[in-house]
Design a protein around this nucleic acid. Structure first.
Lengths: 250, 250
DNA sequence: CGCTGAATTGACGGCTCTCAATGTCGGTGG
DNA sequence: CCACCGACATTGAGAGCCGTCAATTCAGCG
């Protein structure tokens, strides 16, 4: 076991995971290996480099230290479906098949620094519960995405997307009202199941309504309440008839 | 450790998990507890009963022995978003929040028998990798759903849905061409993000095209190739401009 | 300075949602 | 046994959102 002082030093060295209750390396890696792994772990990639690709062996997962990551998969006809974007502090690379093969690819959207957590170096104890918590994050994200896709129109999707980004930046200590979109309009469209033109038009319309200010990749949210309101309202009652039917009480 | 004979006996008692490489109880539960847990585990619920609800404490997950389950969550405006349907052999109840709280509700669609796996009784060893494998299933399912919602039109979604069901029945030893829809049209619509009427119309149109025969809950697939073809083709190039851009090789 | 790719804006058409009516099945009570 | 009823499913007509196609502007870069 490392001394508290040592832990402290390592934790300070990487403040990214504080929102999770401390450095993941200390939580997950065999104590004796922590320092070594953490020092090996820092990988810096330039924009457009793949961290891993679908089909490769999955022998590690990652935490974003700085920069941003796009996770996507390629359909049969050779086109992308974006699965998510990862910001500093986010864990990614956990979605693998039964046989520990990558279910998706991930690529850097800018110069990005990562922590790498090889599966082989994970400590055994309490691993299950920790991993469960982490995978839960991913699944929640998936569910939110599904929810957006299935139940919201273009306005709702864009608003949800921006609100989500704002919250995630906020929880990481950045401004929730002004930030940079590290991904292209196309990426956003892919993520939200919208055409690029629709993304553009919607942003412009939001700007005209005074909800936000947008210039290229720069976004400033002026009326967060209104944004949240748009994000919250669903598009179609389509599945709106899907009310929770409470069956007769026993 | 139980003797091979005992393991064999227990495994035979429950043949559901064979496709997974053997009874999950033997793989996951503390050996000494296996038999006890397995006998306690059998829970039979009548149609319309909740297995658990969103917000409850998540102290166990489940495997469907017989019957079927609908997983859903309720949006702010009190409406459902179906997250998936679970058939015999499927694991569900793994999607929890950080603090081990249910992220979704699940309800029986018919008389259903379940195996219950309390987290407290899980053996420590090799738990991590096993759980990872299992959560991976769930995530893959999520991804497929997202893919459908974001990139397929009504025809594609319905076709994918039916093809998926057929494959899952097939892999469990049932007919892949004729089966019963255990869920209502509304449930299907919720799952696929379509209006009930669209589901109905699409099924009718598929029938008129000779792809399948449908009567109420009974479905018989007549032209599986054509079904798969429809399922495979995407609706909009919307995100179709989302080609995999191969950046310049280094 | 020209080129390339990203982003914006406009016109048009189609898919699917909405609203509404009808048909069908299972259960209930007379 | 039959009429009635409610839930589910089907079918039709109309409208709106969003994708497609196309042109234009703009930023970055060699």
């Amino acid at each position: 076991m490392l001394s508290p002082a040592q832990n402290n030093q390592i934790a300070q060295e990487c403040h990214i995971c504080q929102s999770r209750g401390g450095c993941l390396g200390i939580q997950l890696l065999d104590s004796e290996e922590v320092q070594q792994q953490l020092s090996q772990a820092k990988r810096i990639s330039r924009k457009g480099e793949h961290v891993f690709r679908e089909g490769e062996e999955a022998d590690a997962f990652y935490v974003v230290r700085s920069g941003s990551i796009k996770s996507y998969l390629v359909t049969e006809d050779g086109e992308e479906q974006v699965l998510g974007f990862y910001l500093p502090g986010d864990v990614f690379g956990l979605d693998t098949t039964d046989s520990q093969v990558r279910m998706s690819s991930s690529i850097t959207l800018e110069t990005t620094s990562l922590c790498r957590f090889p599966h082989a170096y994970l400590a055994d104890k309490a691993q299950g519960s920790n991993l469960l918590k982490i995978t839960a994050e991913q699944m929640q994200r998936d569910h939110n995405l599904v929810l957006m896709l299935a139940r919201k129109d273009a306005d709702g999707r864009i608003a949800s997307f921006l609100d989500d980004l704002a919250n995630r930046y906020w929880s990481r200590g950045y401004s929730a009202s002004a930030f940079l979109l590290t991904m292209s309009r196309q990426d956003i469209g892919c993520y939200l199941g919208l055409a690029v033109e629709t993304v553009s038009r919607t942003l412009t319309r939001f700007q005209d309504s005074g909800i936000l200010q947008v210039n290229r990749r720069e976004v400033e949210i002026l009326d967060h309440d209104k944004l949240r309101k748009i994000a919250g309202t669903r598009a179609n009652a389509s599945s709106g008839s899907c009310r929770t039917v409470e069956l007769k009480a026993v």
